[in-house]
Write a protein that binds this DNA or RNA. Sequence first.
DNA 1: CGCCTTTGACCCGCGC
DNA 2: GCGCGGGTCAAAGGCG
Length: 361
Amino acid sequence: MEFTSLVDTSLDLSFRPRPVLEKVPKQEVQSDFTGLSREKENMGVKNEAGDLLEELNRVSSENKKLTEMLTVVCENYNALRNQMMEYMSTQNGVAEDSSAGSRKRKAESISSPVNNNYNNNNNMDVVHGRSSESSSSDEESCCKKLREEHIKAKVTIVSMKTDASDTSLIVKDGYQWRKYGQKVTRDNPCPRAYFRCSFAPGCPVKKKVQRSVEDQSIVVATYEGEHNHPQTSKPESGASTNTSTASRLNVTTIAGTTTSVPCSTTLNSSGPTITLDLTAPKTVEKRDMKMNHSTTSPTGANSIRTTTTTTGGEYQNRPEFQQFLIEQMATSLTKDPSFKAALAAAISGKILQHNNQTGRW
DNA sequence: CGCCTTTGACCCGCGC
DNA sequence: GCGCGGGTCAAAGGCG
């Protein structure tokens, strides 16, 4: 996510006074008083207009300076951020290289295709021959933590309703996944499957899939990270990979600012929790639209759980659904402070522009 | 042959 | 320090 995308200077934040601006009010003042011989009042209004213009120019130049400063700050931020990410990648690569010595398996099989794939990006900037002792463990752990926090900030939880008899833990979401592990966890007798995005070698996204304890017909998938590549294929609406069973899709995203659109091609991270049951007959009901801190998040994060029920095929065309989407988008946008700032700047810019063109204040 | 799943072993963080 | 539990690795085998 680029910072500049949050503060978009294309919204004409830099309000520039134009020659027209100086002329228009004068013309208007003169035209308003044409034919009237009230020299004193006229002079008073002209002085007032002049003062206002002076003030406007001052504020405009100040605004311009601030905008330039903001641009510089944004550029610096991006540069620093890129350096930081690059540095973290390098450190991570070094750390993993250095840790290979301590890990028996890694030392035994460095040429593992899995490892090569997974670390492709990180290895690009690795300075080979650097001893493991030379790297600062503090910095490594710091960078690792930062990276983990960065990833953890983008956690999406998707629940999908399947038949309880369906033992597969595969959620078809349009991406290509490679299963790399399965584990029975303590709090859930059903095994948890671990997947890694296998479409792009350096894609950091991981997915955990496990059946719900409460309702074993619900498969809960937890996505971590963001894909660095486009989606490979469209997710099949209301489908699971098991063709014989299947056909019940619940989408639940957890925690954050972005709302996932059900059955869409993107499973955006970090949105309010939305549970969509596309399986039941043709009714559309919105439940629990308010904040609901219970339920689906194993992390216990604040979440909105919304359950909408209808038939999958017609669902997205229904006006209720469109309205619901708009509401969700509006909610997400209004929660975003940067969007508010950009919107305010855009509105004020437009007002100023309009006033300049009409000559009215 | 290449890719995928399975599965037991290993790693590592955390709480006691 | 030790044990527990979650996460990951990688060899083995299956499948198209």
